[in-house]
Design a protein around this nucleic acid. Structure first.
Lengths: 117, 117
DNA sequence: AAATCATATGATCCTATGTTCATATGAATA
DNA sequence: TATTCATATGAACATAGGATCATATGATTT
């Protein structure tokens, strides 16, 4: 049986395909980027991040300002913590959270700009 | 029964809370931004968008370069179409897709930059 | 017109995700 | 130390999301 065409059965031109394949090359980075966007795809988490971009806040205050339960916020904070996106410290009974990734805030704010245009 | 404290039972200071509330004010925009990120939270869609940022491509070629089935890609393209993020035109049997939102490419590329740093 | 290529769509399945509820742990205070 | 406040965590539940498979539609070619 004869071999397939080198470009398989694609319709686009060789040059275009080369350009396309080049941009898709960094698979790992693409995957990680999608994961980062996954973090930002939930309104509650977006609100938490935005809030923390303005002030260091405890769980209860966060819950209050973003309009979710303490538990829900705590769960989301754990996700953000595990990804190294927020940091926290103890202050008595309180756990004070803050942003630990400047990228995050920048990407988020830029995107909000784009969306609200 | 006595009224609650004007700041409810929050721990953060008045000024900080004002700043936080201000940044959380545009609820609608925040929701839409989260939705946009939802679109970008899937590796297949990210690859499709990246590919289309380099060339106008038909469904089959897209499927080939992103490594997914024709059907899967077609479904994802419908999602992107419904959100007005891609445009398409007929060329004989082929449906040629292209990006129709410059924002998208910009946000995506910037984020990939950040992630790969 | 029949067959073939390309794309689209509907249904189904499986998995991932966010919330709530109950409960546990940590820490200050009475 | 017993209680109360603040946070964390586990389990269960409900929903949404993406992939596949089968099938339908569009469009060209023989």
């Amino acid at each position: 049986m004869a071999k397939e065409n080198p470009r398989d059965r694609l319709h686009a031109g060789k040059t275009e395909l080369a350009r396309v394949n080049a941009v898709l090359k960094p698979e790992g980075t693409i995957r990680k980027t999608a994961e980062l966007f996954g973090v930002l795809s939930d309104p509650t988490r977006v609100k938490i991040i935005l809030a923390l971009s303005r002030a260091e806040l405890c769980v209860g205050d966060l819950a209050s300002v973003v309009g979710a339960s303490d538990s829900a916020v705590s769960h989301q904070l754990r996700i953000l913590r595990n990804l190294g996106l927020v940091a926290h410290r103890r202050d008595g009974k309180l756990a004070l959270y803050s942003l630990s990734d400047e990228h995050l805030e920048k990407i988020l704010k830029e995107s909000i700009e784009h969306v609200s245009e």
